[in-house]
Design a protein around this nucleic acid. Structure first.
Lengths: 108, 108
DNA sequence: CGTTTTGCTACAGATAATGTAGCGTGCTGC
DNA sequence: GCAGCACGCTACATTATCTGTAGCAAAACG
Protein backbone atom coordinates (compact mmCIF):
# COMPACT_ATOMS: atom_id res chain seq x y z
CA UNK A 1 0.00 0.00 0.00
CA UNK A 2 1.17 3.46 -0.73
CA UNK A 3 2.51 5.12 2.27
CA UNK A 4 1.56 8.59 3.04
CA UNK A 5 2.45 11.59 1.03
CA UNK A 6 3.34 14.36 3.27
CA UNK A 7 1.04 14.88 6.07
CA UNK A 8 3.34 15.35 8.93
CA UNK A 9 1.28 15.16 11.96
CA UNK A 10 3.41 16.53 14.67
CA UNK A 11 2.07 14.47 17.46
CA UNK A 12 1.37 11.22 15.83
CA UNK A 13 4.23 8.89 16.05
CA UNK A 14 4.87 6.25 13.52
CA UNK A 15 1.64 6.28 11.68
CA UNK A 16 1.24 8.06 8.42
CA UNK A 17 -1.52 6.11 6.85
CA UNK A 18 -4.02 8.79 7.56
CA UNK A 19 -6.29 6.33 9.25
CA UNK A 20 -7.62 7.96 12.38
CA UNK A 21 -7.50 4.72 14.29
CA UNK A 22 -3.73 4.73 13.95
CA UNK A 23 -3.45 8.23 15.27
CA UNK A 24 -5.71 7.31 18.15
CA UNK A 25 -3.86 4.11 18.98
CA UNK A 26 -0.65 6.06 18.91
CA UNK A 27 -1.93 8.83 21.11
CA UNK A 28 -3.37 6.43 23.64
CA UNK A 29 -0.29 4.22 23.48
CA UNK A 30 1.87 6.73 25.23
CA UNK A 31 2.87 6.57 28.80
CA UNK A 32 0.13 7.55 31.20
CA UNK A 33 -2.31 8.54 28.49
CA UNK A 34 -4.77 5.75 29.17
CA UNK A 35 -4.24 6.10 32.87
CA UNK A 36 -4.97 9.81 32.81
CA UNK A 37 -8.23 9.27 30.99
CA UNK A 38 -9.07 6.56 33.43
CA UNK A 39 -8.40 8.68 36.47
CA UNK A 40 -10.42 11.53 35.07
CA UNK A 41 -13.41 9.34 34.38
CA UNK A 42 -15.08 10.64 37.52
CA UNK A 43 -14.92 14.19 38.65
CA UNK A 44 -12.31 16.69 37.48
CA UNK A 45 -8.99 16.65 39.27
CA UNK A 46 -6.41 19.34 39.84
CA UNK A 47 -3.05 18.70 38.25
CA UNK A 48 -1.67 17.71 41.60
CA UNK A 49 -4.55 15.47 42.50
CA UNK A 50 -4.13 13.80 39.15
CA UNK A 51 -0.48 13.33 39.87
CA UNK A 52 -1.33 11.63 43.13
CA UNK A 53 -3.86 9.45 41.40
CA UNK A 54 -1.23 8.44 38.89
CA UNK A 55 1.23 7.14 41.44
CA UNK A 56 3.16 10.39 41.57
CA UNK A 57 4.20 10.20 37.97
CA UNK A 58 6.55 12.98 37.08
CA UNK A 59 4.83 16.25 36.25
CA UNK A 60 6.84 16.47 33.06
CA UNK A 61 5.12 13.59 31.33
CA UNK A 62 1.81 14.29 32.89
CA UNK A 63 1.92 17.80 31.55
CA UNK A 64 2.96 16.56 28.13
CA UNK A 65 0.15 14.00 27.98
CA UNK A 66 -2.33 16.51 29.28
CA UNK A 67 -1.38 18.94 26.54
CA UNK A 68 -1.72 16.26 23.89
CA UNK A 69 -5.03 15.08 25.24
CA UNK A 70 -6.26 18.64 25.35
CA UNK A 71 -5.21 19.22 21.76
CA UNK A 72 -7.02 16.05 20.82
CA UNK A 73 -10.11 17.45 22.47
CA UNK A 74 -10.47 14.78 25.12
CA UNK A 75 -9.48 16.77 28.15
CA UNK A 76 -9.99 20.34 29.17
CA UNK A 77 -8.84 22.63 31.90
CA UNK A 78 -11.91 23.90 33.68
CA UNK A 79 -12.25 27.60 34.32
CA UNK A 80 -12.16 27.06 38.04
CA UNK A 81 -9.00 25.00 37.65
CA UNK A 82 -8.76 21.27 37.50
CA UNK A 83 -8.73 18.90 34.58
CA UNK A 84 -11.80 17.15 33.36
CA UNK A 85 -13.01 15.19 30.39
CA UNK A 86 -14.76 16.90 27.53
CA UNK A 87 -17.94 15.26 26.25
CA UNK A 88 -15.81 13.70 23.56
CA UNK A 89 -13.31 12.53 26.11
CA UNK A 90 -16.06 11.05 28.19
CA UNK A 91 -17.30 9.22 25.18
CA UNK A 92 -13.85 7.84 24.55
CA UNK A 93 -13.60 6.78 28.14
CA UNK A 94 -16.86 4.88 27.90
CA UNK A 95 -15.51 3.22 24.83
CA UNK A 96 -12.78 1.42 26.64
CA UNK A 97 -14.59 1.07 29.91
CA UNK A 98 -15.29 -2.61 29.26
CA UNK A 99 -11.57 -2.98 29.72
CA UNK A 100 -12.24 -2.79 33.42
CA UNK A 101 -14.32 -5.89 33.46
CA UNK A 102 -11.88 -7.61 31.18
CA UNK A 103 -9.00 -6.77 33.48
CA UNK A 104 -10.86 -8.21 36.43
CA UNK A 105 -11.25 -11.48 34.64
CA UNK A 106 -7.70 -11.39 33.46
CA UNK A 107 -6.07 -10.90 36.85
CA UNK A 108 -2.60 -11.75 35.75
CA UNK B 1 18.36 -5.84 27.96
CA UNK B 2 16.45 -8.44 29.77
CA UNK B 3 15.57 -11.14 27.39
CA UNK B 4 12.32 -11.72 29.09
CA UNK B 5 10.23 -10.17 31.71
CA UNK B 6 10.19 -13.08 33.98
CA UNK B 7 8.45 -11.87 37.00
CA UNK B 8 4.98 -11.06 36.19
CA UNK B 9 4.77 -8.46 38.85
CA UNK B 10 7.89 -6.76 37.78
CA UNK B 11 6.98 -3.17 37.78
CA UNK B 12 3.94 -2.82 36.02
CA UNK B 13 5.23 0.59 35.74
CA UNK B 14 3.99 2.98 38.27
CA UNK B 15 1.16 1.00 39.59
CA UNK B 16 1.32 -0.71 42.91
CA UNK B 17 -2.30 -0.80 43.77
CA UNK B 18 -2.74 -4.37 42.74
CA UNK B 19 -5.73 -3.42 40.68
CA UNK B 20 -5.60 -5.39 37.45
CA UNK B 21 -6.94 -2.49 35.47
CA UNK B 22 -3.79 -0.53 36.30
CA UNK B 23 -1.57 -3.35 35.16
CA UNK B 24 -3.56 -3.62 31.98
CA UNK B 25 -3.53 0.11 31.30
CA UNK B 26 0.17 0.10 31.85
CA UNK B 27 0.82 -2.83 29.58
CA UNK B 28 -1.32 -1.42 26.81
CA UNK B 29 0.11 2.04 27.31
CA UNK B 30 3.47 1.07 25.95
CA UNK B 31 4.71 1.86 22.54
CA UNK B 32 3.18 -0.26 19.81
CA UNK B 33 1.28 -2.50 22.22
CA UNK B 34 -2.16 -1.38 21.12
CA UNK B 35 -1.05 -1.22 17.55
CA UNK B 36 0.25 -4.77 17.62
CA UNK B 37 -3.01 -6.10 18.98
CA UNK B 38 -4.81 -4.13 16.36
CA UNK B 39 -2.75 -5.45 13.49
CA UNK B 40 -3.16 -9.01 14.70
CA UNK B 41 -6.91 -8.71 14.93
CA UNK B 42 -7.26 -10.55 11.61
CA UNK B 43 -5.11 -13.45 10.63
CA UNK B 44 -1.77 -14.24 12.23
CA UNK B 45 1.25 -12.40 10.90
CA UNK B 46 4.89 -13.31 10.76
CA UNK B 47 7.17 -11.10 12.76
CA UNK B 48 8.24 -9.33 9.61
CA UNK B 49 4.77 -8.93 8.25
CA UNK B 50 3.82 -7.44 11.58
CA UNK B 51 6.76 -5.11 11.35
CA UNK B 52 5.61 -3.94 7.96
CA UNK B 53 2.10 -3.47 9.25
CA UNK B 54 3.49 -1.38 12.07
CA UNK B 55 5.23 1.13 9.84
CA UNK B 56 8.56 -0.64 10.06
CA UNK B 57 8.85 -0.09 13.77
CA UNK B 58 12.17 -1.30 15.05
CA UNK B 59 12.29 -5.01 15.74
CA UNK B 60 13.71 -4.32 19.16
CA UNK B 61 10.55 -2.81 20.60
CA UNK B 62 8.31 -5.07 18.62
CA UNK B 63 10.05 -8.07 20.04
CA UNK B 64 9.86 -6.62 23.53
CA UNK B 65 6.13 -5.91 23.24
CA UNK B 66 5.51 -9.28 21.68
CA UNK B 67 7.22 -10.96 24.60
CA UNK B 68 5.19 -8.98 27.10
CA UNK B 69 1.97 -9.64 25.28
CA UNK B 70 2.79 -13.29 25.12
CA UNK B 71 3.48 -13.43 28.82
CA UNK B 72 0.21 -11.66 29.41
CA UNK B 73 -1.46 -14.38 27.41
CA UNK B 74 -2.80 -12.19 24.65
CA UNK B 75 -0.53 -13.25 21.84
CA UNK B 76 1.02 -16.53 20.89
CA UNK B 77 3.52 -17.77 18.39
CA UNK B 78 1.79 -20.36 16.26
CA UNK B 79 3.50 -23.66 15.66
CA UNK B 80 3.77 -22.95 11.98
CA UNK B 81 5.35 -19.60 12.72
CA UNK B 82 3.60 -16.30 12.80
CA UNK B 83 2.05 -14.40 15.64
CA UNK B 84 -1.63 -14.58 16.40
CA UNK B 85 -4.04 -13.65 19.12
CA UNK B 86 -5.00 -16.14 21.77
CA UNK B 87 -8.69 -16.47 22.56
CA UNK B 88 -8.05 -14.13 25.47
CA UNK B 89 -6.23 -11.71 23.23
CA UNK B 90 -9.04 -11.80 20.75
CA UNK B 91 -11.43 -11.02 23.52
CA UNK B 92 -9.33 -8.06 24.55
CA UNK B 93 -9.21 -6.89 20.99
CA UNK B 94 -12.96 -6.99 20.72
CA UNK B 95 -13.10 -4.98 23.88
CA UNK B 96 -11.51 -1.95 22.38
CA UNK B 97 -12.80 -2.50 18.89
CA UNK B 98 -15.41 0.23 19.28
CA UNK B 99 -12.41 2.53 19.31
CA UNK B 100 -12.38 2.14 15.57
CA UNK B 101 -15.75 3.68 15.13
CA UNK B 102 -14.91 6.33 17.65
CA UNK B 103 -11.75 7.21 15.78
CA UNK B 104 -13.67 7.57 12.55
CA UNK B 105 -15.94 10.07 14.15
CA UNK B 106 -13.07 11.80 15.81
CA UNK B 107 -10.99 12.42 12.70
CA UNK B 108 -8.78 15.04 14.23
C1' DC C 1 23.80 -27.99 -1.50
C1' DG C 2 22.22 -22.58 -1.93
C1' DT C 3 18.75 -19.43 -1.23
C1' DT C 4 14.99 -17.39 1.42
C1' DT C 5 12.54 -16.57 5.26
C1' DT C 6 11.75 -17.28 9.83
C1' DG C 7 12.20 -15.40 14.89
C1' DC C 8 15.20 -12.89 17.24
C1' DT C 9 19.46 -10.19 18.95
C1' DA C 10 23.41 -6.36 19.13
C1' DC C 11 24.43 -1.92 19.62
C1' DA C 12 25.22 3.05 18.93
C1' DG C 13 22.63 7.16 18.68
C1' DA C 14 18.33 9.53 19.54
C1' DT C 15 14.25 10.32 22.21
C1' DA C 16 11.24 10.20 26.07
C1' DA C 17 10.40 9.54 31.07
C1' DT C 18 11.88 10.06 36.04
C1' DG C 19 12.69 12.66 40.08
C1' DT C 20 13.43 16.81 42.29
C1' DA C 21 13.27 21.47 42.57
C1' DG C 22 11.21 25.73 41.76
C1' DC C 23 8.87 29.61 39.15
C1' DG C 24 4.82 32.94 38.58
C1' DT C 25 0.04 33.60 39.65
C1' DG C 26 -4.01 33.95 42.13
C1' DC C 27 -5.95 33.31 46.07
C1' DT C 28 -6.85 33.39 51.11
C1' DG C 29 -6.60 35.21 55.98
C1' DC C 30 -4.63 38.53 58.85
C1' DG D 1 0.10 44.55 51.57
C1' DC D 2 1.97 40.64 52.91
C1' DA D 3 3.11 35.82 54.65
C1' DG D 4 1.15 31.36 53.45
C1' DC D 5 -0.53 28.23 50.33
C1' DA D 6 -2.25 25.73 46.29
C1' DC D 7 -2.63 26.18 41.53
C1' DG D 8 -0.70 25.10 36.56
C1' DC D 9 3.44 24.56 34.71
C1' DT D 10 8.61 24.44 33.70
C1' DA D 11 13.99 23.27 34.21
C1' DC D 12 17.22 20.00 34.14
C1' DA D 13 20.36 16.21 35.12
C1' DT D 14 19.86 11.27 35.33
C1' DT D 15 17.98 7.14 33.72
C1' DA D 16 15.05 4.26 30.90
C1' DT D 17 13.32 3.27 26.51
C1' DC D 18 12.94 3.46 21.42
C1' DT D 19 15.05 3.88 16.70
C1' DG D 20 17.60 2.23 12.88
C1' DT D 21 20.62 -0.77 10.84
C1' DA D 22 22.92 -4.86 10.62
C1' DG D 23 23.20 -9.55 11.20
C1' DC D 24 22.82 -14.31 13.40
C1' DA D 25 21.13 -19.37 13.78
C1' DA D 26 17.56 -22.38 12.56
C1' DA D 27 14.01 -23.86 9.55
C1' DA D 28 11.71 -24.05 5.18
C1' DC D 29 12.05 -24.14 0.66
C1' DG D 30 14.48 -25.19 -3.87
Amino acid sequence: MAKQAGSRTRSVRGSHTGRPIMALLDLLGRRWALRILWELRGEPLTSRALRSACDEASPTVLQARLTELREAGFVELGDGGGYGLTPLGRELCETFMPLHRFAERWRR
